[in-house]
């Protein structure tokens, strides 16, 4: 064997592969699929294997199409998901996402992948009941493959490459898909006019809020505002951070029936998710705030982000009346890219 990228495993059993990964400090702790050349070639589907999609810190690993495909196979991704994974990795490499900080921080941040448009149905992603998991192969393996790319190519292993104090469950796999709604798809709202797209937002696990009773969108969103207006999230001290609001289809339908667009939901939450400036100051010595917020008197009610445009609304989930807010790590911006087959 001359290719240094290829390893020989004397035993094809899952246990032997598991042991090899453990010995080398690879993997996410769960069993994997063996990335044999045949499987990796299938995932590559004839693409130029050495093309570098992104360079990922802190290791400075080159996320070549081959390296991405290897991790796709390890995660159990079917080959047709490779373009989605490549797009997500491309997003991770964008400077505005600040992957170096995402991996270096003690915050539990994980990149959330949201799949939009035709690809949701075409590739079998689940945007319905249990969209955040478990039980759907596309959501589970795509999210897991992103994490494996981070562990292996970016070197984001807990300790030397990922300083998160506690980690969080979404660091195993964090992928959902956008449900169809009365609104145009999310990616159109951020200027990506493509049939399908992928968004990566680096944030916390979803924080649930529910309203089972009302047909009043303001009462529903007051609960979202309540979930947002907490001092425990980084958005409280970093005003440039985004929020992702994952409305369930029924809550979104209530908003639409009242004549509200996405932007109206964001505007409402910007006005309602507030705390007095003096309370922020009592809680934090270090506040990374916009200038106009720094000048506010103690009794002025300040928002949980410096502008309404930082509140990003998408629809996901199935029947029922549970929605979620997803706080940001703060020093990161989401990236939405068109999905290129």
């Amino acid at each position: 064997m001359t290719d240094p990228d290829l390893l020989e495993l004397a035993d094809e059993s899952p246990e032997a592969l598991y042991a090899l990964l453990e010995e080398r400090g690879w993997g996410d702790g769960l069993p994997v699929v063996a990335p044999t050349p045949e499987r990796v070639d299938a995932a590559l589907a004839g693409a130029h294997a050495d093309e570098v999609i992104a360079v990922l810190p802190p290791r400075g690993g080159a996320a070549t199409r081959r390296a991405i495909a290897v991790n796709a196979v390890l995660a159990g991704c079917p080959p047709e998901l490779t373009p989605v994974l490549v797009t997500a990795v491309r997003a991770l490499g964008h400077q505005r996402l600040n992957l170096r900080g995402v991996n270096a921080t003690t915050h539990p941040v994980a990149p959330l992948v949201i799949v939009h448009g035709d690809a949701v149905d075409d590739l079998g992603f689940n945007s319905g009941l249990g969209a955040f998991g478990p039980g759907n192969r596309a959501n589970a393996t795509l999210g897991r493959a992103v994490r494996l790319v981070l562990l292996h190519v970016a070197g984001a292993r807990p300790g030397p490459g990922d300083a998160s104090t506690q980690g969080q469950p979404s660091k195993y796999a964090y992928c959902t898909a956008e449900s169809r709604s009365e609104w145009p798809p999310y990616h159109h709202s951020v200027g990506v006019e493509a049939p399908s797209a992928v968004t990566v937002h680096c944030g916390e696990n979803p924080h649930n809020f529910h309203d089972m009773e009302s047909g009043d969108i303001e009462r529903i969103l007051d609960k979202a505002a309540s979930a947002m207006a907490t001092f425990g999230v980084n958005n409280a001290c970093i005003s440039g951070g985004e929020w992702f609001i994952g409305l369930c289809p029924e809550h979104a339908a209530t908003a639409h029936a009242a004549g509200w667009e996405r932007g109206d939901v964001a505007d409402y939450l910007f006005e309602r998710a507030r705390r007095p400036a003096g309370e922020f100051r009592r809680q934090f010595e270090l506040l990374s705030w916009a200038g106009w917020m720094r000048d506010a008197p103690d009794d002025e009610m300040l928002p949980m982000t410096q502008e309404a445009a930082n509140i990003r609304v998408f629809v996901t989930g199935g029947a029922g009346k549970h929605s979620c807010v997803i706080p940001s790590w703060g020093m990161t911006r989401s990236v939405t890219l068109p999905l290129v087959p």
Binding site: P4, L7, E8, L17, A34, V70, V153
Partner: peptide
């Protein structure tokens, strides 16, 4: 069997 290393 032969497998690819995942680190790139």
């Amino acid at each position: 069997i032969r497998i690819h290393a995942p680190v790139g």
